[in-house]
């Protein structure tokens, strides 16, 4: 069990965010006591993990398989050139420790799957979905619905990005929105790191709001952002009757 009280070093590190009027030291303690699972540490998830660590989330469970590839480096800011060919999860762990040694890291060198989803989700308070494959996203969604844990969903393509916070019992689940995997799904697509970083930052703000209770989470609403035109659309989303997961 982590010590709830903040040390002097932590108080100094988080000073600027503790100044947020409705966060204060109490809010910071809530972040310290919290745990978050990030599935995949790519362009979105890596930046999510980085800002969660910077914000002082107490424990991060991080799932990502594979080794660093050259094509990761335009957006996966936890991966470095000197780590090419070596495990992504090690690069991520090293970078997060460099940033904030106060955060407890639980690195998992495999991707989330139907086999490990319940166990990984069971370790945390909130989950952030930054995964490219629907099987993985559906497994995460099912575990979150079953365990009644919020799932912050972020996605991107080209200069577009999408965000919503799924809260079991209150909002649609991922399977309400997408009852089946899209046909011929491609896991690789055009994107800039600045686009993944933008939506990742917004996802972390959602996590901070859920944990501290400030603001209003993006629940029952989907934010669609087109950075080509700078159009920010907020759309209502609804539960699907007879949903195979939450219905």
């Amino acid at each position: 069990m982590t010590e709830r009280r903040l040390s002097d070093a932590e108080r100094a590190r988080y000073e600027w965010q503790i100044w947020t009027p409705d966060v204060g030291e109490q809010g910071q303690q809530k972040l310290k006591q919290a745990s978050v699972l990030v599935s995949r540490l790519g362009g979105v998830g890596g930046t999510v993990a980085y800002y969660l660590a910077a914000a002082g989330i107490g424990r991060l469970v991080l799932a990502h398989a594979g080794n660093v590839k050259p094509s990761d480096l335009n957006r996966q800011l936890l991966m470095t050139t000197d780590w090419l060919g070596k495990p992504r999860i090690e690069s991520a762990e090293r970078r997060l420790r460099e940033l904030n040694p106060h955060v407890e890291l639980v690195p998992v060198g495999e991707n989330l799957s139907p086999d490990n989803a319940a166990e990984l989700v069971g370790q945390v308070d909130i989950v952030v979905d930054a995964a490219p494959l629907y099987e993985e996203r559906f497994a995460m969604n099912a575990a979150c619905v079953q365990q009644q844990k919020p799932l912050v969903e972020c996605a991107m393509y080209d200069l577009d990005a999408q965000l919503t916070t799924l809260i079991p019992g209150q909002t649609p689940c991922l399977a309400c929105l997408y009852p089946q995997s899209p046909p011929n799904w491609k896991r690789e697509f055009p994107v800039f790191g600045a686009v993944s970083g933008m939506i990742a930052s917004m996802a972390v703000v959602e996590v901070i709001k859920l944990l501290t209770g400030i603001g209003e989470p993006l629940a029952g609403r989907m934010q669609w952002i087109n950075l080509r035109t700078m159009a920010f659309r907020q759309l209502p989303i609804a539960r699907r009757e007879g949903c195979r997961v939450c219905g």
């Binding site: 362009g43 995964a131 996605a155 577009d160 697509f189 669609w224």
Partner: peptide, 8 residues
């Protein structure tokens, strides 16, 4: 029309 998109 919003097609499915994802992380990555």
């Amino acid at each position: 029309l919003l097609p499915p998109i994802s992380g990555g």
